[in-house]
């Protein structure tokens, strides 16, 4: 059952946001004081990728209900840093044992996480790697569990490059320019294009959004009619780009690539409208993070851990 879980998390998030943290507390007290409580702090729950991640974590918790309790929280907007900092603080004051976080920003969250660690909370970083320099400055060691976005984007880029010739031109539609994974994916796309001798003529932000990416893609197609492919840093933007290609009458002539493998792109990959996307197994990602947290809680070592990225192309 997906829906009740989601409802529950929404209600819990609402309750915690209003400072009614005791409601969740009572629940865990009832089950026994020894069971650790893990808080999963996500980025945008409006993004299917993170929603999948949260669903996976909740399903996993149900199977291991005797081992730990789980609280899932997310923010509306992937760029809403303040809301995520607030969430971390609320989780600390709620007295959770571990926080597994997909940071909205690779640098700005360090102070909040330092306060959490100082308060005795175990922190595990998933999805978007925290900036190493900032962590070193703060004297923090936070294990990272997640995929290599740059490597994944390079794999997707190589598929596209394989269908183009040397000297062809392409454009990149980036995520929010300050986000670590946006930067990594852009670098990955660029690595692949450079290796194949393909020129990137334009690289603009679509802010992770479908509508914004559609506008930007349409403008790029008008400005650079010679562009042969649009490399999008996530699938929502790829969907917007597909529509722009369609509106320009270029379907089949301009390739579109995405990232994340959300459910809506499945049919488009099969029909060829999207050339390739990458699956980072979001559902497992959170689980790996939670497992790492539980391991540390039971005395294990804190180590970085790379998770798998699979390439999705037409079968």
């Amino acid at each position: 059952m997906k829906k009740p879980g989601f409802l529950k998390s929404v209600l819990l998030a609402a309750a915690c946001a209003f400072g009614l943290s005791s409601c969740g507390q009572q629940e865990s007290d009832k089950d026994g004081p020894d069971k650790p409580v893990v808080a999963l702090v996500m980025k945008s729950l409006a993004n299917e990728f993170f929603k999948t991640m949260a669903d996976g974590a909740e399903a996993y918790q149900k199977e291991h209900a005797d081992q730990f309790d789980l609280i899932v929280n997310g923010i509306r907007n992937e760029t809403d840093l303040t809301a995520q900092v607030n969430l971390v603080e609320q989780m600390v004051s709620r007295g959770v044992d571990a926080i597994v976080i997909a940071p909205a920003d690779s640098k700005a969250l360090a102070p909040a996480l330092k306060r959490a660690i100082d308060a005795g909370v175990t922190v595990v970083n998933i999805d978007n790697q925290l900036d190493e320099k900032v962590l070193a400055e703060a004297g923090l060691q936070i294990p990272f569990v997640g995929p290599d976005n740059r490597e994944g984007a390079k794999m997707v880029g190589e598929v596209v490059a394989g269908q183009l010739a040397k000297g062809d031109k392409v454009a990149i539609i980036e995520g929010v320019p300050t986000a670590f994974n946006a930067i990594q994916r852009k670098l990955g796309f660029e690595d692949a294009m450079k290796a194949a001798g393909i020129e990137v003529v334009s690289s603009q932000s679509g802010s992770w959004e479908m509508a914004k990416a559609n506008t930007v893609a349409a403008a790029i197609l008008s400005e650079h009619p010679e562009v042969k492919a649009l490399l999008c840093a996530n699938d929502s933007m790829a969907l917007g780009a597909v529509q722009a290609v369609k509106a320009a009458g270029q379907t089949g002539k301009v390739l579109v690539a995405g990232f994340d493998n959300i459910s809506a792109v499945g049919p488009l990959v099969q029909s060829g409208e999207i050339a390739a996307t990458a699956d980072q197994h979001g559902d497992e990602l959170a689980i790996f993070g939670i497992e790492a947290a539980l391991q540390i809680l039971s005395g294990g070592a804190a180590e970085n851990q790379k998770t798998r990225v699979d390439l999705i192309v037409k079968k």
């Binding site: 509508a211 559609n214 969907l239």
Partner: peptide, 11 residues
């Protein structure tokens, strides 16, 4: 225009 929608569309 977008061939679809999600909850974040009107942001």
């Amino acid at each position: 225009r977008l061939g679809g929608a999600n909850a974040d569309s009107g942001n």
